[in-house]
């Protein structure tokens, strides 16, 4: 457990020393979301209608941004080989990396989302549900993204390729996440969607670390 915490702390420290990386993700999220009113027009009804979907899609793309460095730097400086040989199971090490990625990506996005919700004229309950859905959904994105990063380690055209791999797999997260907010307008409760979002996270939590570990072992061979 100490080793796990150590690994998370190391990545957080790296992020702390380079605050630009986290700020870039947040800036991208803000920019991508604010392009939509310019693209579809400023009518409040339309913006409120598309707001949850737009913010979720923007969050999805923003979560892809910082992935290409998740394992790449460790591969270059040799610490990935250490991870593979270390006493800590590689599955747990992969989980630690994904947790650090979420703490420096998904969590800040979630915290920032209420402000963007206001830009789209979402009401209080919509904003609350959106934030909860992001809180439950972005960890799954970090896990799937970690898998994409591990699979494309050392590949040509890594970044675009990673999006092609990860985004189709993340379709359920997007659907349940947006569905939670839209269920409010439909009169149905959003708890259904939130439970599904949590269930997806549990499945991802149980399966992706193995796949990431397998991919990392291939990469250092």
């Amino acid at each position: 457990m100490t080793r796990f915490r150590h690994l998370v702390a190391r990545d957080l420290l790296t992020a702390w020393r380079r605050p630009g990386d986290v700020l870039l993700v947040l800036a991208f999220f803000l920019l991508a979301a604010s392009l939509f009113p310019l693209g579809v027009g400023p009518e409040p009804q339309i913006l409120q209608r598309i707001g949850p979907g737009v913010l979720w899609v923007a969050a999805l793309f923003a979560a892809m941004l910082s992935l290409d460095r998740l394992f790449a730097e460790d591969l270059v400086d040799g610490s990935l080989e250490h991870l593979v040989l270390a006493p800590l199971p590689l599955e747990l090490a992969a989980l630690a990396k994904c947790l650090a990625h979420w703490l420096t990506g998904g969590l800040p996005l979630t915290l920032m989302s209420p402000a963007l919700g206001l830009l789209f004229g979402l009401d209080g309950s919509q904003i609350a549900v959106l934030a909860v859905s992001l809180l439950l959904g972005t960890p799954s994105l970090s896990l799937l993204g970690g898998l994409g990063a591990a699979l494309t380690l050392g590949a040509r055209r890594g970044g675009a390729l990673m999006s092609l791999l990860v985004l189709p797999l993340a379709v359920p997260v997007l659907i349940f996440g947006v569905g939670a907010v839209e269920a409010l307008a439909g009169g149905a409760g959003s708890s259904n969607a939130l439970v599904l979002l949590a269930a997806f996270f549990l499945v991802a939590l149980a399966s992706t670390p193995w796949a990431i570990a397998a991919a990392l072992r291939q990469a250092v061979e």
Partner: peptide, 16 residues
């Protein structure tokens, strides 16, 4: 590895 993850995820995608 991708194909194995994809085949697990495919029913979930279908359901969603």
């Amino acid at each position: 590895i991708l194909a194995l993850v994809g085949v697990i995820n495919l029913p979930i995608i279908k359901f969603s």
